Amino acid sequence: MSGMRTREAGEVFGPRMTLFADVLSVGLATTAACLPLLTAPAALSTACAVLRGAGEDRPATAGRYFALLRRRLRTGDLAAGAMALTGALLFAADLALAGAGLPGAALFATVAAAIGATAVVVAVRACGRPESLTDWPAAVRGAARDAVRDPGGSALALLAVATAALCAWMLVPLAFLAPGPLALALTAVDVRLAGRTDGATAAPTRPPAR
């Protein structure tokens, strides 16, 4: 997103303010698209795709968001939503059992929290990858590799999710806007890793010493 244009003469708001407004509008659109629950992964993935296009001078608007979402909704997207919803329900049930005072509950809760955090990181990083638009299995495999080789990005993704959840919990109206900044953060994490990988590939190799 470094290729944003400079402010035109007489323009009140600069490109960064425009992007901020676009992020909020995309966030509202994403919230609306997530309401059926099964569409949540596709909704977040589409938001990341739309915001990624802002760095390529494509409009990041709610209209473009819904147009892209209508073209991509398919059986695979709904299956991804069903798996995500099932995983969330199982995780909530496990934590409820851990809180019931069963023997070894503290250790079980710790292990369940670690597994849940890992699953969340892989899931949200998969939504941030371009492959999620057409191939969820490939996106999940790529996200799992990224989670291992890029722990810093995984920490940033988990922090973005925690921040969005905290904002929604502290002030309920923010829940309607939180998906936009979350999608922007996930897109930035993916673009950051892609740029770093491309830079390492393009770096000239030093000739062997003679």
Rank of each mutant, 00 (worst) to 15 (best):
R16W: 15
R16I: 15
R16D: 13
M17E: 15
F20R: 02
A21M: 14
D22G: 09
D22P: 02
V23A: 06
L24V: 15
V26P: 01
G27I: 06
L28T: 11
A29Y: 06
T30V: 10
T30C: 10
T30S: 08
T31I: 04
C34Q: 06
L35I: 15
L37C: 09
L37N: 07
L38M: 07
T39L: 03
T39H: 01
P41I: 09
L44W: 03
L44S: 02
T46N: 12
A49M: 08
A49I: 10
A49C: 12
V50R: 06
V50T: 04
V50W: 03
V50C: 03
G53V: 04
D57G: 12
D57V: 06
R58K: 09
T61P: 04
A62L: 01
G63N: 06
G63E: 06
F66R: 07
A67L: 10
L68S: 10
L69W: 01
R70N: 02
R72N: 12
G76A: 10
D77N: 11
L78Y: 03
A80I: 10
M83V: 11
T86N: 05
G87A: 14
G87L: 13
A92G: 09
A93W: 14
L95D: 13
L95F: 15
L95W: 14
A96W: 13
L97Y: 04
L97M: 14
A98F: 15
A100Q: 11
P103T: 11
A106Q: 13
F108C: 02
T110I: 14
A112T: 09
A114E: 04
A114G: 09
I115F: 15
G116H: 02
A117Y: 06
A117I: 03
T118P: 08
A119Q: 11
A119K: 06
V120Q: 11
V121M: 08
R125M: 12
C127K: 00
G128F: 03
G128D: 04
G128W: 01
P130Q: 00
E131M: 02
E131F: 00
T134D: 12
T134L: 11
W136K: 06
A138G: 08
V140G: 03
V140R: 01
R141G: 07
G142R: 07
A144R: 09
D146W: 10
A147W: 06
R149L: 13
P151S: 02
G152F: 05
